[in-house]
Write a protein that binds this DNA or RNA. Structure first.
Lengths: 313, 313
DNA sequence: TACGGTACTGTAAACGTTTACACTATTCTA
DNA sequence: TAGAATAGTGTAAACGTTTACAGTACCGTA
């Protein structure tokens, strides 16, 4: 508990604490001999640099903030994991906050991270408001958004190409012989979902097939919503040979509904989602089958296409 | 960027910065009038308290460190999410680090968090070594372990009752009529897996059924390992009516293998895993079926049992 | 010998807070 | 009315670093 500081080491070494600091920071203006002696002493005494004090004088913390709506969603949790490793390898530590899909909470944790003096914030925004009201916050610290989940565009964001991704998925199903493709989406006015739907619609037009769109009355693309929509859909007569889901969690819910309705994927119907297509043999083509999960763990490999897929990958 | 400090506010307010600090910290030794005036001014000037400076003088940071092997595992990512919310509601911010199942990296990030001056560390330990070599680290900051993944016991840990959990699972399958229950586990000498296996074995003995244990030659309980084991198993003649998996990820891999082998769960075979049992109708009992995913999102509800289940929940 | 340069080390201020202590003004008590 | 108690505010030190600047000692050169 009574942690050893620079001063302690300096006292034992019989030098000033500036010298110790220099030895540790690899400053060139110090003799090799003193450096070795001091480093050895630091190790012996179990000295741990206090990065809070360090941040105080240098004006940065080497800490990054990450705001995600939830960690229950595999997309977000895996993203978080990879981000942490990437950041740490570059000297940054990650502070993670849930916004719990709550617009106000999102602002709250943003301010929290700002007061924590993070050097930057990465966030998957929630709410379908404009980015504009967030400007007063994001002006305080460099911020980059993930996804285009709002009506307008922020200055800095990175996103997959939702529009093109959905086009690719639609065209792929078409190339397999599907002509009746159902689009399954949550009722969301977010940019993301607008782009996905537009991608589907534009492909339908281009391919001269009739679009079939089913949008739930809920705004969240959750598993529960997909389950409810799927249950409803499968309980009635339907003609589509493939379903294209606007979001992964939706697709998972639909899969469950299909399972319970005794409908087999991909035998009875094909299902398109982000990381994989579960494909039904096309009406007039040889049998085609895709494993539910790949064995090699390289989920981004193969030729899977879907709504969230980056173009060209 | 040139953030406004206590000093700035004090200058404008015409008081000392100690007064401003007191106004903000809710100190009683200040007049209500000054407090209101200063708080208003703080808001106007966009003052954000610098918690780095604050941590400098108070000797704690209100930051907690969390070390997990991976965030790709739903158990760990969901745990992380809930921990973050719980911590934040109590004034703590979470720093998350991956150990990537690497014992040395685990030690490295531990030191990193210590130098970050976190007030405490929660970790899911990796490696099957003793806790003992970690003592030099954990003596530096209050630490609690999750799971009993090592040979001996640390001072502070929280874990599910692995032994009893597996007993419950075994007995449940038995009560449904299963007499040939296969135990599927990775070849791990960790305490956790030892306890789970023991739980299974003790139940078998108590129920007078013969234990069937299949352990992979890999030590990781990954999806890939489960897939490989399942593929191997399903390709040969087998008599078991139920499979009990020692870990979730293992079970997921087995499910995939079953899918590819054309074996239906729970129609052809039952599968036991942490959060759910996928049950095959018992040989001499009425049909019993469990959905693959519950519709209500309350995954801890119901009567699911399995290796990781807390006793009594 | 004196001077300048080099190589190293020490001194002290700064980062933005909190808080013990000192101080002043006001009110209460005797 | 003096003195003490009280309420409010200011002063300054401290937290553990980094770093500009000021030394000091030594060496080489003129």
């Amino acid at each position: 508990m009574p942690s050893v500081t620079l001063k302690d080491v300096a006292k034992v070494a019989g030098v000033s604490y500036a010298t110790v600091s220099r030895a540790l920071s690899g400053s060139p203006e110090i003799s090799e001999e003193t450096r070795r002696r001091i480093l050895k002493l630091c190790k012996e005494m179990g000295y741990t640099p206090n990065s809070v004090a360090r941040s105080m004088v240098k004006r940065y913390t080497n800490v990054l903030g990450l705001i995600v709506p939830s960690l229950n969603n595999p997309f977000m949790s895996e993203l978080t994991g990879h981000l942490e490793i990437y950041a740490r390898n570059r000297g940054y530590t990650l502070m993670v906050c849930n916004s719990s899909y709550d617009y106000d909470l999102q602002k709250e944790v943003f301010s929290l991270l700002v007061s924590r003096q993070v050097d930057g914030i990465i966030m998957i925004p929630v709410g379908h408001e404009s980015y504009e009201p967030l400007n007063v916050l994001t002006s305080q610290v460099p911020t980059v958004f993930i996804s285009e989940n709002m009506k307008d565009y922020p200055e800095n964001y990175v996103s997959v190409n939702n529009h093109r991704g959905m086009q690719i998925a639609t065209e792929y199903l078409y190339s397999l012989g599907h002509r009746d493709i159902l689009y399954f989406g949550a009722r969301s006015d977010s940019k993301t979902h607008q782009l996905r739907l537009d991608g589907y619609l534009s492909s339908c037009e281009k391919l001269s097939i009739e679009p079939h769109v089913l949008r739930s009355s809920y705004t969240r693309s959750s598993r529960e919503v997909g389950y409810a929509m799927g249950g409803e859909y499968f309980s009635r007569p339907h003609q589509e040979t493939a379903i294209l889901c606007a979001a992964d969690m939706l697709a998972i819910g639909v899969m469950q509904a299909a399972f319970e309705a005794g409908i087999r994927i991909p035998k009875d119907i094909s299902l398109g989602l982000r990381q994989h297509l579960l494909l039904r043999p096309a009406p007039d083509r040889p049998h085609h089958r895709e494993p539910a999960l790949p064995a090699d763990g390289h989920r981004r490999g193969g030729h899977a296409v879907g709504a969230d897929q980056k173009p060209g990958s």
